[in-house]
């Protein structure tokens, strides 16, 4: 993306709106790293940038610590938060507007049409010694990567984050400023889930058993999720205690089932849970399986429409009953 355009639009937002903080992406000094940055003044906006390396979602900062960023601004008098949002992020925002009652006008959305982002683990795995990446651009299915006076071309497919491969919403669905032309979007595709569904139950169990046994229970998947914001989380409750603290396959399984089920009809598909996992659990498979089932059962896609009520907070006489046992 054209950095100048991003910076100018961000500055314009500061001039035009009563913005207390703009949450955007900043280039880190180390390797391919990108960090969330919190811009408080117009001049600081020069630090903003966007590239296919911007794989992290910024939406969870709106709800972190009981939404301190939003609450804090309410106290100081109706100030707004601005945020750089891709397609998936806009879905998360729509979901938050509906669930949390965050006023739409309190958030200024700088929408980024997204062509998919690079999985940091993949690019760091390919170029482990890169010190300072200066540029990543994308054209015709190739990434052009420059770092430490080297230039490389890598097929997009090789570095693309897995959850981006199936993205049906690359364009922001809600925005105040659009930073680039909209990109073509595919319909929802679930080839990965269909593969999984073909596996026998035993086989599937084996697959997940191996994965969940690795879980460190670091709560990064939950904390990074823009839609995991409960003050009183089932995964931490002591009485009653639904999930024991001990880290073993049985408890880990319970942990992940509870986590993914609580995102049923809510997951925005941003892939944060998977991105942050230090032991590479393919958590989006669970989330996308639920997304697919819910689409089939209720004809509902989370965060796809500003006017939708949250799925489990609304009743439709046409809802099927047959999934209730």
């Amino acid at each position: 993306m054209d950095k100048e355009k991003l910076v100018n639009e961000a500055k314009a937002v500061f001039s035009r709106e009563d913005v207390a903080c703009l949450i955007g992406y900043g280039k880190d000094s180390i390797g391919f790293r990108v960090s969330p940055i919190f811009i408080r003044t117009r001049d600081e906006a020069d630090q903003l940038f966007f590239s296919p390396l911007c794989s992290l979602s910024l939406v969870n900062y709106l709800t972190l610590e009981k939404g301190v960023l939003l609450e804090g601004n309410k106290e100081t008098g109706g100030e707004k938060i601005a945020i750089v949002a891709r397609g998936c992020d806009s879905r998360a925002l729509i979901q938050l507007f509906a669930e949390r009652g965050i006023p739409r006008e309190q958030v200024v959305i700088l929408g980024v049409p997204c062509r998919g982002t690079i999985d940091l683990k993949k690019i760091e795995g390919k170029f482990p010694d890169a010190r300072n990446c200066t540029e990543v651009t994308e054209a015709e299915g190739m990434y052009y990567i420059r770092f430490d006076n080297e230039s490389h071309e890598v097929p997009k497919e090789e570095l693309l984050a897995d959850h981006c491969k199936h993205c049906a919403f690359p364009n922001p669905l809600v925005y105040d400023v659009l930073l680039e032309d909209l990109v073509d979007s595919k319909g929802a595709a679930y080839s990965d889930i269909e593969e999984m569904e073909k596996m026998a139950l035993e086989e599937r169990h084996e697959y997940w058993k191996d994965k969940f046994a690795r879980c460190l229970r670091c709560y990064a998947c939950r904390n990074a999720c823009p839609l995991c914001y409960c003050d009183d989380c089932i995964l931490e409750r002591v009485s009653p205690q639904w999930v024991n603290r001990s880290v073993n396959l049985s408890e880990n399984l319970m942990f992940h089932l509870a986590r993914s089920y609580h995102l049923a009809g809510r997951c925005a598909g941003c892939g944060e849970c998977e991105r942050v996992c230090p032991v590479n659990l393919p958590l989006m498979l669970l989330n996308r399986k639920l997304e697919k089932d819910i689409k089939n059962i209720f004809e509902y896609t989370a965060g796809s429409n500003l006017d939708d009520k949250p799925l489990f907070a609304s009743f439709n006489p046409k809802d099927p009953n047959d999934f209730i046992f």
Partner: peptide, 10 residues
């Protein structure tokens, strides 16, 4: 930036 996960400590 911190999201209060346990990765650094674990």
């Amino acid at each position: 930036k911190c999201i209060s996960c346990g990765i650094c400590t674990y």
